[in-house]
Design a binder for these strands. Structure first.
Lengths: 156, 156
DNA sequence: TTTTCGGTCATACTTTAGGCTGATTTTCCA
DNA sequence: TGGAAAATCAGCCTAAAGTATGACCGAAAA
Protein backbone atom coordinates (compact mmCIF):
# COMPACT_ATOMS: atom_id res chain seq x y z
CA UNK A 1 0.00 0.00 0.00
CA UNK A 2 2.74 2.34 0.98
CA UNK A 3 4.69 1.32 -2.05
CA UNK A 4 1.71 1.99 -4.29
CA UNK A 5 1.47 5.45 -2.82
CA UNK A 6 5.16 6.05 -3.48
CA UNK A 7 4.99 5.03 -7.09
CA UNK A 8 1.84 7.04 -7.80
CA UNK A 9 2.83 10.01 -5.73
CA UNK A 10 3.21 12.27 -8.74
CA UNK A 11 -0.17 11.31 -10.13
CA UNK A 12 -1.85 11.97 -6.83
CA UNK A 13 -0.03 15.24 -6.46
CA UNK A 14 -1.13 16.23 -9.91
CA UNK A 15 -4.76 15.34 -9.29
CA UNK A 16 -4.88 17.09 -5.95
CA UNK A 17 -3.19 20.24 -7.22
CA UNK A 18 -5.54 20.27 -10.18
CA UNK A 19 -8.51 20.04 -7.88
CA UNK A 20 -7.20 22.79 -5.65
CA UNK A 21 -6.55 25.05 -8.60
CA UNK A 22 -10.03 24.51 -10.00
CA UNK A 23 -11.55 25.24 -6.66
CA UNK A 24 -9.45 28.37 -6.36
CA UNK A 25 -10.49 29.57 -9.78
CA UNK A 26 -14.14 28.91 -9.05
CA UNK A 27 -13.88 30.73 -5.80
CA UNK A 28 -12.18 33.70 -7.44
CA UNK A 29 -14.82 33.67 -10.12
CA UNK A 30 -17.65 33.86 -7.64
CA UNK A 31 -15.89 36.34 -5.43
CA UNK A 32 -14.90 38.96 -7.97
CA UNK A 33 -17.28 38.28 -10.84
CA UNK A 34 -16.10 36.87 -14.01
CA UNK A 35 -15.00 39.41 -16.48
CA UNK A 36 -16.48 37.79 -19.50
CA UNK A 37 -14.17 39.23 -22.04
CA UNK A 38 -11.09 38.31 -20.03
CA UNK A 39 -11.71 34.65 -20.69
CA UNK A 40 -8.80 34.54 -23.10
CA UNK A 41 -6.53 35.87 -20.38
CA UNK A 42 -7.96 33.38 -17.96
CA UNK A 43 -7.41 30.43 -20.25
CA UNK A 44 -4.02 31.73 -21.25
CA UNK A 45 -3.02 31.89 -17.60
CA UNK A 46 -4.13 28.33 -17.08
CA UNK A 47 -2.31 27.22 -20.19
CA UNK A 48 0.89 28.85 -19.03
CA UNK A 49 0.60 27.47 -15.52
CA UNK A 50 -0.04 23.96 -16.71
CA UNK A 51 2.60 24.15 -19.36
CA UNK A 52 5.03 25.12 -16.62
CA UNK A 53 3.66 22.31 -14.51
CA UNK A 54 4.12 19.88 -17.39
CA UNK A 55 7.68 21.02 -17.88
CA UNK A 56 8.39 20.66 -14.22
CA UNK A 57 6.79 17.24 -14.16
CA UNK A 58 8.72 16.08 -17.18
CA UNK A 59 12.03 17.26 -15.80
CA UNK A 60 11.22 15.72 -12.47
CA UNK A 61 10.19 12.37 -13.77
CA UNK A 62 12.30 11.90 -16.84
CA UNK A 63 14.79 9.14 -16.45
CA UNK A 64 18.31 10.37 -16.67
CA UNK A 65 20.03 9.04 -19.72
CA UNK A 66 22.74 6.78 -18.50
CA UNK A 67 25.88 7.44 -20.35
CA UNK A 68 28.19 4.57 -19.64
CA UNK A 69 31.79 5.40 -20.05
CA UNK A 70 34.02 2.41 -19.96
CA UNK A 71 37.41 3.30 -18.68
CA UNK A 72 39.97 0.71 -19.46
CA UNK A 73 42.08 0.21 -16.43
CA UNK A 74 45.14 -1.90 -16.55
CA UNK A 75 45.29 -4.17 -13.60
CA UNK A 76 48.70 -5.28 -12.55
CA UNK A 77 48.06 -8.45 -10.72
CA UNK A 78 50.63 -10.05 -8.55
CA UNK A 79 52.17 -12.54 -10.94
CA UNK A 80 50.96 -15.78 -9.38
CA UNK A 81 47.37 -14.58 -9.06
CA UNK A 82 46.40 -14.62 -12.69
CA UNK A 83 47.61 -18.10 -13.43
CA UNK A 84 45.30 -20.60 -15.00
CA UNK A 85 46.86 -23.81 -16.09
CA UNK A 86 46.79 -24.48 -19.79
CA UNK A 87 45.84 -28.12 -19.63
CA UNK A 88 45.91 -28.60 -23.37
CA UNK A 89 49.54 -27.59 -23.58
CA UNK A 90 50.34 -29.63 -20.53
CA UNK A 91 48.86 -32.69 -22.17
CA UNK A 92 50.78 -32.02 -25.33
CA UNK A 93 54.05 -32.19 -23.45
CA UNK A 94 53.11 -35.52 -21.90
CA UNK A 95 54.58 -34.55 -18.55
CA UNK A 96 53.65 -36.74 -15.61
CA UNK A 97 52.52 -35.22 -12.34
CA UNK A 98 55.86 -35.90 -10.74
CA UNK A 99 57.72 -34.38 -13.63
CA UNK A 100 55.55 -31.30 -13.48
CA UNK A 101 56.23 -31.07 -9.77
CA UNK A 102 59.95 -31.16 -10.42
CA UNK A 103 59.60 -28.56 -13.15
CA UNK A 104 57.80 -26.22 -10.79
CA UNK A 105 60.51 -26.56 -8.17
CA UNK A 106 63.11 -25.97 -10.86
CA UNK A 107 61.31 -22.74 -11.73
CA UNK A 108 61.54 -21.71 -8.09
CA UNK A 109 65.29 -21.82 -8.47
CA UNK A 110 65.96 -25.01 -6.57
CA UNK A 111 68.90 -27.24 -7.47
CA UNK A 112 68.35 -30.90 -8.18
CA UNK A 113 69.81 -31.69 -4.76
CA UNK A 114 67.35 -29.34 -3.06
CA UNK A 115 64.43 -30.75 -5.01
CA UNK A 116 65.48 -34.26 -4.00
CA UNK A 117 65.55 -33.21 -0.35
CA UNK A 118 62.18 -31.53 -0.63
CA UNK A 119 60.51 -34.54 -2.21
CA UNK A 120 62.32 -37.08 -0.03
CA UNK A 121 63.88 -38.91 -2.94
CA UNK A 122 67.41 -39.35 -4.17
CA UNK A 123 69.35 -37.00 -6.40
CA UNK A 124 69.36 -39.73 -9.06
CA UNK A 125 65.59 -39.73 -9.18
CA UNK A 126 65.43 -36.02 -9.68
CA UNK A 127 68.06 -36.21 -12.38
CA UNK A 128 65.97 -38.79 -14.17
CA UNK A 129 62.87 -36.64 -13.84
CA UNK A 130 64.69 -33.53 -14.91
CA UNK A 131 66.08 -35.29 -17.97
CA UNK A 132 62.61 -36.48 -18.88
CA UNK A 133 61.25 -32.97 -18.45
CA UNK A 134 63.88 -31.54 -20.78
CA UNK A 135 63.28 -34.32 -23.27
CA UNK A 136 59.50 -34.01 -23.23
CA UNK A 137 59.63 -30.26 -23.48
CA UNK A 138 62.16 -30.47 -26.28
CA UNK A 139 64.73 -28.17 -24.69
CA UNK A 140 68.34 -28.51 -23.64
CA UNK A 141 68.54 -26.57 -20.39
CA UNK A 142 66.35 -26.13 -17.35
CA UNK A 143 66.27 -22.39 -17.88
CA UNK A 144 64.76 -23.00 -21.31
CA UNK A 145 62.28 -25.44 -19.83
CA UNK A 146 61.20 -22.85 -17.27
CA UNK A 147 60.86 -20.12 -19.87
CA UNK A 148 58.89 -22.33 -22.20
CA UNK A 149 56.67 -23.71 -19.45
CA UNK A 150 55.82 -20.19 -18.33
CA UNK A 151 55.02 -19.09 -21.84
CA UNK A 152 52.76 -22.11 -22.28
CA UNK A 153 51.11 -21.45 -18.93
CA UNK A 154 52.08 -24.82 -17.62
CA UNK A 155 53.57 -23.27 -14.49
CA UNK A 156 52.79 -19.91 -12.79
CA UNK B 1 17.15 35.22 -39.94
CA UNK B 2 16.69 31.61 -40.72
CA UNK B 3 18.85 30.73 -37.72
CA UNK B 4 16.74 32.97 -35.47
CA UNK B 5 13.69 31.13 -36.69
CA UNK B 6 15.33 27.80 -35.98
CA UNK B 7 16.29 28.67 -32.45
CA UNK B 8 12.89 30.18 -31.62
CA UNK B 9 10.88 27.60 -33.48
CA UNK B 10 9.48 26.13 -30.32
CA UNK B 11 8.44 29.51 -28.95
CA UNK B 12 6.74 30.44 -32.17
CA UNK B 13 5.08 27.07 -32.37
CA UNK B 14 3.88 27.50 -28.82
CA UNK B 15 2.46 30.94 -29.44
CA UNK B 16 0.78 29.99 -32.68
CA UNK B 17 -0.73 26.83 -31.27
CA UNK B 18 -1.93 28.77 -28.25
CA UNK B 19 -3.57 31.33 -30.51
CA UNK B 20 -5.20 28.64 -32.62
CA UNK B 21 -6.45 26.83 -29.57
CA UNK B 22 -7.96 30.00 -28.12
CA UNK B 23 -9.61 30.80 -31.39
CA UNK B 24 -10.94 27.28 -31.60
CA UNK B 25 -12.30 27.44 -28.09
CA UNK B 26 -13.90 30.80 -28.74
CA UNK B 27 -15.46 29.54 -31.94
CA UNK B 28 -16.77 26.43 -30.22
CA UNK B 29 -18.15 28.56 -27.44
CA UNK B 30 -20.06 30.77 -29.84
CA UNK B 31 -21.12 27.90 -32.01
CA UNK B 32 -22.55 25.54 -29.44
CA UNK B 33 -23.24 27.83 -26.52
CA UNK B 34 -21.26 27.68 -23.46
CA UNK B 35 -22.49 25.19 -21.00
CA UNK B 36 -21.88 27.26 -17.96
CA UNK B 37 -21.49 24.51 -15.52
CA UNK B 38 -19.07 22.61 -17.70
CA UNK B 39 -16.42 25.23 -17.11
CA UNK B 40 -14.53 22.89 -14.84
CA UNK B 41 -14.41 20.35 -17.63
CA UNK B 42 -13.28 22.99 -20.03
CA UNK B 43 -10.49 24.21 -17.78
CA UNK B 44 -9.51 20.69 -16.91
CA UNK B 45 -9.19 19.85 -20.58
CA UNK B 46 -7.00 22.86 -21.14
CA UNK B 47 -4.94 21.99 -18.09
CA UNK B 48 -4.39 18.47 -19.35
CA UNK B 49 -3.60 19.56 -22.87
CA UNK B 50 -1.08 22.11 -21.73
CA UNK B 51 0.42 19.83 -19.18
CA UNK B 52 0.97 17.37 -21.98
CA UNK B 53 2.36 20.17 -24.11
CA UNK B 54 4.67 21.19 -21.29
CA UNK B 55 5.89 17.65 -20.90
CA UNK B 56 6.47 17.35 -24.60
CA UNK B 57 8.27 20.68 -24.63
CA UNK B 58 10.43 19.77 -21.74
CA UNK B 59 11.40 16.42 -23.17
CA UNK B 60 12.03 18.01 -26.54
CA UNK B 61 14.13 20.88 -25.35
CA UNK B 62 15.77 19.81 -22.16
CA UNK B 63 19.26 18.51 -22.39
CA UNK B 64 19.22 14.87 -21.59
CA UNK B 65 20.35 14.24 -18.08
CA UNK B 66 23.58 12.42 -18.44
CA UNK B 67 24.51 10.13 -15.67
CA UNK B 68 28.05 9.12 -16.32
CA UNK B 69 28.87 5.73 -14.99
CA UNK B 70 32.50 4.85 -15.07
CA UNK B 71 33.03 1.18 -15.41
CA UNK B 72 36.54 0.00 -14.84
CA UNK B 73 37.31 -2.73 -17.24
CA UNK B 74 40.13 -5.00 -16.37
CA UNK B 75 42.50 -5.50 -19.23
CA UNK B 76 44.58 -8.56 -19.00
CA UNK B 77 47.46 -7.95 -21.27
CA UNK B 78 49.49 -10.72 -22.79
CA UNK B 79 52.34 -11.46 -20.45
CA UNK B 80 55.20 -9.69 -22.17
CA UNK B 81 53.15 -6.53 -22.72
CA UNK B 82 52.32 -5.79 -19.11
CA UNK B 83 55.88 -5.34 -18.04
CA UNK B 84 56.98 -2.10 -16.50
CA UNK B 85 60.43 -2.08 -15.09
CA UNK B 86 60.67 -1.59 -11.38
CA UNK B 87 63.54 0.83 -11.40
CA UNK B 88 63.70 1.12 -7.65
CA UNK B 89 64.35 -2.57 -7.23
CA UNK B 90 66.77 -2.53 -10.11
CA UNK B 91 68.75 0.21 -8.43
CA UNK B 92 68.73 -1.69 -5.17
CA UNK B 93 70.44 -4.62 -6.79
CA UNK B 94 73.16 -2.41 -8.23
CA UNK B 95 73.17 -4.28 -11.52
CA UNK B 96 74.97 -2.59 -14.40
CA UNK B 97 73.35 -2.35 -17.79
CA UNK B 98 75.51 -5.13 -19.14
CA UNK B 99 74.74 -7.38 -16.22
CA UNK B 100 71.03 -6.78 -16.68
CA UNK B 101 71.42 -7.62 -20.32
CA UNK B 102 73.06 -10.91 -19.44
CA UNK B 103 70.37 -11.62 -16.87
CA UNK B 104 67.65 -11.11 -19.45
CA UNK B 105 69.32 -13.49 -21.86
CA UNK B 106 69.72 -15.98 -19.02
CA UNK B 107 65.98 -15.76 -18.46
CA UNK B 108 65.40 -16.56 -22.12
CA UNK B 109 67.09 -19.86 -21.49
CA UNK B 110 70.37 -19.12 -23.19
CA UNK B 111 73.58 -20.76 -22.02
CA UNK B 112 76.60 -18.66 -21.14
CA UNK B 113 78.17 -19.72 -24.41
CA UNK B 114 75.13 -18.60 -26.37
CA UNK B 115 75.01 -15.29 -24.52
CA UNK B 116 78.67 -14.75 -25.29
CA UNK B 117 78.04 -15.40 -28.97
CA UNK B 118 75.05 -13.08 -28.99
CA UNK B 119 76.95 -10.23 -27.37
CA UNK B 120 80.17 -10.82 -29.30
CA UNK B 121 82.26 -11.33 -26.19
CA UNK B 122 84.09 -14.29 -24.73
CA UNK B 123 82.64 -16.96 -22.48
CA UNK B 124 84.90 -15.70 -19.72
CA UNK B 125 83.28 -12.31 -19.84
CA UNK B 126 79.81 -13.77 -19.55
CA UNK B 127 80.95 -15.93 -16.66
CA UNK B 128 82.23 -12.88 -14.90
CA UNK B 129 78.99 -11.03 -15.53
CA UNK B 130 76.90 -13.98 -14.50
CA UNK B 131 78.86 -14.36 -11.28
CA UNK B 132 78.37 -10.67 -10.55
CA UNK B 133 74.68 -10.98 -11.25
CA UNK B 134 74.35 -13.88 -8.83
CA UNK B 135 76.40 -12.03 -6.25
CA UNK B 136 74.48 -8.77 -6.56
CA UNK B 137 71.14 -10.52 -6.49
CA UNK B 138 72.23 -12.58 -3.53
CA UNK B 139 71.42 -15.96 -5.05
CA UNK B 140 73.37 -19.07 -5.86
CA UNK B 141 71.94 -20.22 -9.18
CA UNK B 142 70.82 -18.58 -12.38
CA UNK B 143 67.39 -20.12 -12.01
CA UNK B 144 67.05 -18.35 -8.67
CA UNK B 145 68.25 -15.12 -10.21
CA UNK B 146 65.64 -15.39 -12.94
CA UNK B 147 62.86 -16.18 -10.51
CA UNK B 148 63.82 -13.34 -8.20
CA UNK B 149 64.26 -10.86 -11.03
CA UNK B 150 60.83 -11.67 -12.39
CA UNK B 151 59.24 -11.29 -8.99
CA UNK B 152 60.93 -7.92 -8.55
CA UNK B 153 59.87 -6.85 -12.06
CA UNK B 154 63.43 -6.31 -13.10
CA UNK B 155 62.91 -8.45 -16.21
CA UNK B 156 59.72 -9.28 -18.13
C1' DT C 1 95.43 13.69 -11.96
C1' DT C 2 94.30 9.91 -9.41
C1' DT C 3 90.59 6.97 -8.26
C1' DT C 4 86.63 4.40 -9.29
C1' DC C 5 83.74 1.65 -11.98
C1' DG C 6 82.11 -0.99 -15.86
C1' DG C 7 83.47 -4.01 -19.19
C1' DT C 8 86.65 -7.08 -21.01
C1' DC C 9 89.44 -11.55 -20.84
C1' DA C 10 92.02 -15.53 -18.88
C1' DT C 11 93.23 -19.61 -15.96
C1' DA C 12 92.24 -23.03 -12.63
C1' DC C 13 89.14 -25.22 -9.92
C1' DT C 14 84.53 -27.01 -7.88
C1' DT C 15 79.79 -27.81 -8.32
C1' DT C 16 75.73 -28.60 -10.77
C1' DA C 17 73.35 -30.09 -14.74
C1' DG C 18 72.47 -33.21 -18.22
C1' DG C 19 73.05 -37.72 -21.16
C1' DC C 20 73.09 -42.58 -21.35
C1' DT C 21 72.27 -47.10 -19.74
C1' DG C 22 70.15 -50.30 -16.93
C1' DA C 23 67.54 -51.79 -13.04
C1' DT C 24 63.62 -52.43 -9.42
C1' DT C 25 59.25 -51.25 -7.55
C1' DT C 26 54.69 -49.24 -7.60
C1' DT C 27 50.40 -47.87 -9.66
C1' DC C 28 46.72 -48.32 -12.42
C1' DC C 29 43.86 -49.82 -16.08
C1' DA C 30 42.07 -52.86 -19.69
C1' DT D 1 45.58 -60.17 -13.33
C1' DG D 2 49.09 -59.06 -16.65
C1' DG D 3 51.36 -55.38 -18.69
C1' DA D 4 52.21 -50.45 -19.57
C1' DA D 5 53.39 -46.34 -17.53
C1' DA D 6 55.20 -43.96 -13.71
C1' DA D 7 58.34 -43.55 -10.09
C1' DT D 8 62.32 -44.89 -8.00
C1' DC D 9 67.55 -45.51 -7.84
C1' DA D 10 72.63 -46.14 -9.37
C1' DG D 11 76.92 -45.47 -11.99
C1' DC D 12 79.57 -43.10 -15.27
C1' DC D 13 80.64 -39.63 -18.24
C1' DT D 14 80.50 -34.88 -20.43
C1' DA D 15 78.85 -30.23 -20.54
C1' DA D 16 77.60 -26.24 -18.39
C1' DA D 17 77.51 -23.35 -14.52
C1' DG D 18 79.62 -21.12 -10.90
C1' DT D 19 83.92 -19.53 -7.81
C1' DA D 20 88.16 -17.28 -7.23
C1' DT D 21 91.73 -14.53 -8.65
C1' DG D 22 94.13 -11.45 -11.40
C1' DA D 23 94.78 -8.38 -15.21
C1' DC D 24 93.86 -4.67 -18.78
C1' DC D 25 91.43 -0.69 -20.69
C1' DG D 26 88.64 3.45 -21.04
C1' DA D 27 85.49 6.76 -19.32
C1' DA D 28 83.76 9.38 -15.74
C1' DA D 29 84.01 11.19 -11.17
C1' DA D 30 86.44 13.10 -7.24
Amino acid sequence: MRKWFATHKSTILYTVSLGILLFLLRWLELRFMVIRYALEFYIGAIAIVFTAFGIWLALKLSRPKVNTVIVEKQIFLPRPADFTLNEKELEKTGLSTRELEVLQLMADGLSNQEIAAKLYVSLSTIKTHSSKVLEKMDVRRRTQAIDKAKKLNIIP
